[in-house]
Each structure stands twice: as C-alpha cells, then as structure tokens.
Design a binder for these strands. Structure first.
Lengths: 341, 341
DNA sequence: CTGAAAGCGCTTACAG
DNA sequence: CTGAAAGCGCTTACAG
C-alpha cells in the first residue's frame, strides 16, 4: 500500500479512480495516453495497490495454502518444488502452514477453512482423526481442498487427492526382502493416527501373508516417525526373542535411526540386519550403507496436486474427486542382503 | 465467511450490525442479554467473520510471514518451533514463504513488503545480493522486518537480528581441530552469496592465521550448501596435492555429503580424515561416525526473533536494531581424531 | 448500552 | 474510452 491510495494517483493523473484501476488491471480498456499518464502518477507517488482491499473486493486472494506437518522434513523439498512451479504457472502465490504435531486440531481446521485468506488448500499432512471435522467445517465454506501424499480416509473421500499406492509400494518393498530369502521381517511404523503409515503396514502384512510368513507379536512397532522413536523401536526389535533379520521402516527418517541403532548395537547392516526405508529422501543415498527404499515422485506429486487444486478452484466441485495415483519405484542400494550369505 | 454476513446475524438477533461486531470483539461493551441473543444468531447462521474484510478494515492481519530458503531443511524445524510458540503467545498466526534459491529476487521482495498481507516479516534466508533492494523497497512501507540466523550485511544493518556469532563459532570449531594436532585443515563453504557462510569462512581463516597455519590454494572450496556440492568439493580436496587431514564444513548438510564421499574413496573418518560440521541438525548424531559440529540454539533463536518482531510491530522503529547474539556450542562426537594417532 | 452513519481502498456494472 | 456511484463486510467514532 505504501500509504498512498488510488485516490492520490487519480488526483495526480487527473482521472477518476476507476480509470486508475483500469489502467492497472485492464490496460486494454484505456487509451495509451491515459495509461501513460496514470503510469507516471504511479511512479511519482510510489503507489502500489492495497492487496488487502483488492482481495476483499474481489473475493479472492490468489494465494493457496499448503499445510504440511513440519518444515524441516526433507521429503517436502521436492513436493514444494513441484507445487511452486505449477503455482507460478497458474499465477498463484503459495504460503505454507505448519501443523506441528502431524495432526490438525479441529479448531485449526475450522480457522483455516473459514478465514478465506486463501483460495484453496493443499493438505500434505496426516489428518486422520479429524476427517469429519474437515468435512463438516467445510460443508459451508466449500473451500477447494486437495490432498497430497497422504492416503485419504473415508471421511475425506470427497476431496481429490494425488499420491502413490502406499499399500502396493510397501508390498513391493517387503516382497523384495522376501525375494532375498528373508523370512523374519519386522516393521517400524508410525503412530496410530498416521493414515499413510497404516497403508504401508497393510502392505507389509499382506505381503507377509501372501508369502505365508508369520508376523510375530512385537514385530510391528511404533517408531513415531522420528529418529528417536525408531531407535527405541529398533532396540526392542533387536531384543526380541525371535529377532528379525530384516526391518522395514515406514519412512526414511526412521530408517536412518534404525540403521544407526543396529550399528550401535554392534551389528552390521546389511550383514546381520537388512533395512529398507520409504520415501527416498536425499539423505538416503548417503547413509552408511546407502539405503534401499521406495522412491516417490515427489515433485510430480506437487505439480499434480497444485493443478488439481486449480481445477477445483475454477470448476468448483464439478471437478472429479477420484484419487490420482502416481507411480512409485523400489530403489535398490546396499542396505539389504541375503541373510544366509 | 461461510457466505453469511454480519447483516444476516444482525437481522436474526434483531440488533444493529454494530452490536454484532461489539458482541464478538468487545463483549464487555454489551449487555449479557444482547450478547446471548447475538451468540444464538451466530450459532443459527453458522456465521464467522470475513477475515479479509476485518483485516482490510483494521489495517492489520495478525499474520507474520517467515521467509526461509527451503522447506525440507532440517535446521528450521526447531527455529520454527520457537517462532510458533512465541507467535501463539502473542496471538499471531505464522505463515511461511519459501524462496527457492536461497536468495530473493528484487521483485519478490518488493511484492512481499508491499502486499500488506502480513504485519511483519522474519527473514531466515540469505539475502546478500539484495540488501539494498530490501532497504529501499521498504523505505516507503516500513513493514517490520527482523532477521534470524543469518549474518546481516551492511545494507541490512538497519534491521534487528538475532543469531549466533558465526565467526567465533567457526573459529572455535577450527581451533578444536588445531588442538587435536591438525595442521592441514580445509574448508567447504557455501556460495559467494551466502553471507553466513562468509562469516564462517572468516572464522576459519582467522583461526588458521592465528595458529600460523597456512591455507593452501584449493583448500577452501564451494560446496553449494548441498550434499551433491559437498561430495564434489570433497573429491577435489582428496585429490589435492597436499591433502588435508581435516575438513571443516560450513553446515551439516555438506558434512553429511563429505562424510559419505570420504568413505566412498576408501578412507576412514576420522582415522584418515576428520570432519566437522555446523548446525547440529538432528541427523548429525546418527551419521557414521556421529558428527562433531557446532550447535545453534535454534529454538531460542526462533522465539527471540519472533518476540523481537512483535516489539518492532508495536513500538515501530523505536525498537533497537542492534543484533542479538545467542550462544553457540561445540558438540564433540566421533568424527574428529588426532591425525598422528 | 445501542444504533445510524461514515469510511477503509478497491472494482465494476451502468451511463454517457 | 471515461466517470459517478454503488457496494464488498467490517469497525468505530459520534450521538443519544
């Protein structure tokens, strides 16, 4: 705003404020001469429109908000790159909102939906327990929402989403372990509330069952999606009476903690214990040993989710809400070997 | 907004819109009875105020924006935690803006400053080449800005800041290496444009000079602040005709790349090459070997920078602009040993 | 304590 | 092509 308003510009350019507005927003509706006069007045005054007033008046902000669990999670680097490139393309600014604990409170959700400060929302955060709140809070406002990365719960099935097939990906990871002759395979997963972790766990259990391999009590442990949590979980696994030969982690963050803890216990990776991660964050290829993991097309997810949101914004709820599945890939590095060898 | 406005509420409660507004924002100015009536009408209609209109009218948004180089940088996790806790305390929402390339373009800066969508800005991003743009773009608007973590360039000296003493910290890291009898110490730093890297380099050079140790040509290499960049830089260092026995990295991200590259070359850390990082991100204690590094009080920086911003917002430019220095700490782990041993 | 009215800075039919 | 005017949804002196 720079404290000078459109009026001042109009006065100096000797035109009406309507004309100033047009010169800026619809220059084709104005003669070249007027446009120049106005341009000049703008330069003189250092005017720039009050965005708040514009947004208020227009009823839209051209801002989309992406909600993610935590800044500092390396996985989101590439997703954001994708979102940003699509947003730029479409003329949107993007603003990030962090939801500390990987779950939103109902209040936060309500506030977000209702405070039409943004034209739409991209949810990259796990929102399991609040699915209903979101749906209901949004029933009035109908703010366009698209979900990325996360598996969608039943309550959120109304919203479009783009993500990999977490169940299939986890199955593939575990099948790879099985193909390397592992039979005692454990899993470190996330909290109960983390939906995508649930899907990965389901993939693990399915693969085990299909291979007729037992999943012993105590082989599936909660690693809290953190390094510290994974370390503790790993200790439990190593002390298990029927110690696994391989550990599948629901994300790379935990795999990094797991790797470290196995080695701290004096065991070798992969010779004593094989480890598989999930996400293929940038640290995965420089762990020791480099981590075998599932790679997600993070940037592509970002782009698609943003374009999807734009379609929702433009088309309203006419836009389809079926999930968009993008391909994952098993990346084989050195953290897995044959337990017999 | 939920599409019902204050008018509708007023109609239903049978009061004026002024009274509705008061009931919400200054309930003490209204009788209990009226308040209840209004409350009821709000419930019935599902009304919630149009934030855009409020912000526009009030001339403030109660939102602060934090600008950081990249989502996905683990260092910012704790900084954000601090910012968020202080913000909550002060009744602000915080919104994050990412500046992909660790430098803002002049345009972006202008847009940010001018679009009074926020009440203030916390800059956590390196802004070296644009110091002047910021100052000048802001000369009109006078949007409160506070700088965190980064060293401030001369052009930005007007703005308050809070950060560690990067020069002293780097000196301390290098002196530790020297105390372990290293003499051939190299450094991997960031791009030219990265100010805080410059300070860390200065600390390195100062320590070397004071110890009367030479810094050979080719011992200070640009690692681009990335893993890939650091790996390349490390290869150069390992091939140096006078190969260093220790490598000081300007951040942990690069130290992780360095560690990996040294080991890939068949050398041992710390036995052949000692490595020191900077930042103490959460991965530093689970690298192999665990990384000796400089720890920053990231959460404290976040809190202080936010409180500082609040003071700027409230007090205007009366608030002092001297930098606030917080203490760093050398964290000794296992990536350094005596080269003679 | 409450209401009528002004006004925040824009945009956009509506006339001309 | 341009201007006068209405209005977006609020908040806040100003009266009463």
């Amino acid at each position: 705003m720079s404290d000078v308003s459109i009026k001042e510009v109009a006065r100096i350019a000797d035109v009406s404020i309507a004309t100033v507005s047009r010169s800026i927003n619809n220059p084709e509706q104005v003669t070249e001469k007027t446009r120049l006069k106005v341009q000049d007045a703008i330069r003189q005054t250092g005017y720039s429109p009050n965005t708040l007033a514009q947004s208020f008046r227009r009823g839209r902000t051209n801002i989309v908000m992406v909600v993610l669990p935590s800044v500092g999670d390396p996985f989101f680097t590439a997703v954001m790159r994708g979102i940003r490139s699509a947003a730029k393309n479409k003329g949107y600014s993007v603003v990030i909102e962090e939801t500390q604990f990987n779950t939103l409170t109902a209040d936060e959700i309500g506030a977000m939906l209702v405070s039409n400060q943004t034209d739409g929302i991209i949810l990259l955060a796990s929102v399991s327990p609040f699915g209903t709140e979101i749906s209901s809070a949004n029933s009035k406002r109908r703010l366009p929402i698209v979900i990325g990365c996360e598996t969608v719960s039943r309550e959120l099935a109304d919203f479009p989403s783009v993500h990999i097939d977490n169940i299939a990906a986890a199955k593939e990871a575990v099948n790879y372990l099985i193909s390397q002759d592992h039979e005692r395979i454990a899993m470190i997963c996330g909290q109960e509330s983390s939906l995508l972790t649930k899907d990965r766990e389901l993939g693990y259990r399915t693969a085990m069952k299909q291979a007729k391999l037992p999943v012993e009590d105590g082989w599936v442990v909660d690693g809290d999606l953190t390094i510290a949590g994974a370390r503790k979980a790993t200790r439990n696994l190593l002390n298990h009476s029927n110690r696994p030969t391989a550990i599948f982690c629901a994300n790379d963050e935990m795999a990094i903690g797991c790797l470290h803890e196995v080695k701290s216990a004096g065991l070798g990776v992969p010779d004593d214990i094989s480890v598989v991660g999930f996400d293929d964050i940038r640290y995965a290829e420089v762990t020791d040993p480099p981590l075998t993991t599932i790679s997600q097309p993070a940037e592509e997810i970002g782009e698609r989710v943003m374009y999807r949101l734009c379609r929702r914004i433009d088309a309203g709820n006419g836009e389809s809400s079926s999930p968009e599945i993008v391909p994952h890939k098993l990346v084989i590095r050195q953290s897995v070997t044959n337990p017999a060898s």
